[in-house]
């Protein structure tokens, strides 16, 4: 087997749009869970809404910035719809309602009735809405090789998308860093520990939780835009497994840390590509066909998640001392 090309694949995936999108989604989930203790099981719903919002408004002819803002607006509205009724209830309800709501978005998106708008279960093809983003690139078109990776400058899975994507990730990290050390972040952490105590100190817990849900959801939506710009908007590719992967990424990197989600996402995709590549290369195809290797990769993801919780619940960047304390 060809290790050099496998390692190139790993590098390409670990720095690619998928890793970027999941990093953004995990940063959002970090605000929900790591900072506020909200169990959002519907991050994929925010991503899907972001992707739809961006794609549909671009197809409708709106400029890039407006489409981006509409995508964010969709996430804000979705967060409010979810949060207003459920954030007053116990935590489990939020988990169930968010996962249900994300599925509702997906069911509606793929329903035959909305074929004209969302493309039904086929989704929206990238070529229908990528032009405004690709057109905004200051770089000349063409194939550009940097190190072992050779990509189009502007089209689809491009250098341009990576530049913008990592820029967004950096911005998100900066925002989280600033918020973490602010009094606002302090209230969120207090809510994570014990919301009744925070309420007793005169903070309107409900408002803070709502703000947290909205902000984290917006990062999810931005992640959704990135993933849709790399390929297409496909409702079934933004289902429950995406949320589960995002959780794995967050816990792998370390919740309540600034760079945990980013590191988690890079490692997650690198490891997945590496493991799949090794299995493809080392296991003869008549024993395991390539279609079976993909789900096997996810079997490993699931096991990793279990082992993480059991053996290193604080993740790679988390503070063991902090987690050792059982509130």
């Amino acid at each position: 087997m060809d290790f050099a090309s496998l390692l190139t694949d790993v590098l390409r995936e670990a720095t690619g749009p998928t890793a970027i999108a999941y990093a953004l989604a995990a940063i959002g989930l970090n605000i929900h869970f790591g900072l506020t203790g909200l169990i959002n099981m519907g991050q994929a719903g925010f991503m899907l809404l972001g992707a739809y919002g961006f794609a549909i408004s671009t197809i409708a002819g709106l400029p890039l910035v407006v489409a981006f803002l509409i995508a964010i607006g969709c996430a804000v509205v979705f967060a409010l719809i979810l949060g207003l009724p459920t954030l007053k209830l116990r935590g489990d309800y939020l988990a169930i309602v968010t996962i249900a709501a994300a599925e509702i978005i997906r069911f509606i998106g793929r329903s035959v009735g909305l074929n004209d708008l969302t493309g039904g279960s086929q989704g929206l093809l990238g070529n229908q809405f990528k032009y405004s983003f690709e057109g905004a690139s200051p770089f000349a078109d063409g194939l550009v090789a940097i190190g072992p990776i050779s990509l189009q400058m502007n089209a689809s899975n491009s250098w341009w998308l990576r530049i913008v994507g990592w820029g967004l990730v950096a911005l998100a990290c900066l925002i989280v860093f600033l918020l973490l050390r602010s009094p606002w972040g302090r209230v969120l952490k207090g809510i994570r520990e014990d919301e009744d105590a925070v309420r007793a100190l005169g903070k309107n817990v409900y408002t803070f939780k709502l703000q947290s849900l909205v902000l984290g959801g917006v990062f999810g939506a931005v992640g959704g835009i990135v993933i849709s710009l790399a390929s297409s908007v496909q409702p079934d590719s933004l289902g429950r497994p995406v949320t589960f992967n995002t959780w794995t990424i967050l816990l792998l990197g370390g919740a309540a840390t600034v760079f945990g989600p980013v590191l988690g996402s890079i490692l997650f995709w690198a490891a997945l590509v590496l493991v799949r590549g090794l299995m493809r290369g080392l296991i003869p195809p008549d024993v395991l066909s390539s279609t079976e290797i993909e789900p096997l990769g996810f079997v490993l993801v699931g096991i990793t998640l279990v082992l993480l919780i059991v053996f290193r619940p604080q993740g790679i960047l988390g503070d063991k001392k902090e987690l050792a304390i059982n509130g």
Partner: peptide
């Protein structure tokens, strides 16, 4: 039951 915010 005291509600000290443990991980702060």
């Amino acid at each position: 039951l005291t509600k000290a915010l443990s991980r702060m």
